[in-house]
Amino acid sequence: MIEVRGLAKQLGRQEILRGVDLTVAKGETLVIIGRSGGGKSVLLKHLIGLMQPDAGEIWIEGENIIGLTERKLARIRRKVGILFQGGALFDSMTVEENIAFPLEEAGERDPEKVAEKVREMLDVIELEGQEKKMPVNLSGGMKKRVGLARSIIRRPSCVLYDEPTSGLDPVVSDSINRLIRRLQKRFGVTSIVVTHDMKSAFHLADHIAYLHEGRIYFYGTPQELEISTDPLIQDFMLGRSENGAPKSG
């Protein structure tokens, strides 16, 4: 369960978030859509305490995480995985070491067990045979998949995905979408997915939220989004720029 109330954040002179309210029920998938630079990544970073808001509350499984110290946040962070927009792989480590990192940090000392889990993950992200490569030698999409494996290998109860399929070919995109769906179905993982890809949004979402100018402009089921007649939303869904939608900040 994730609940966000009145979240506001100013970065430099720019008000990025101006009072975001959101609720994600346990086991549900919320898709957040919105224009580039609209603050979606910033919002996700708040949810695991990587950024501190100027105002508002964030409740994760019944606990307000605002104001917790870095060490206290560790407990929350073990329950919540995040896939960064750029993958954020450790560039001093191989693919294999990146994926194994969370396990080793959690104190798993048995190299057999670690290797087994890593193989399983490589299979899931379809990167078998690439485990010895360094991140600099991977394409953007491969980095993202490795980042995904690293964020879910410890089976968090909640995963935040920042544009998991952008920059991937349609086939791999589809397999990532299926994976997200499977994690949700099989393990009851609560997910928040930021995406520009309307196809995967409809495929994954229980609810969709449209973040616009620092607030949730629309919140509803995919069906409700589809029949919405709001011009801003229609512009976004159809990818129109000329219809005079106000530029987002």
Binding site: G86, A88, D91, E105
Partner: peptide
């Protein structure tokens, strides 16, 4: 510094590593 600007420090923190 490179780790900081490429979000690797954030990734460490997100994985509950100080």
């Amino acid at each position: 510094g490179t780790m900081k600007v490429t979000e690797q420090i954030d990734a460490l923190r997100a994985l509950a590593v100080h």
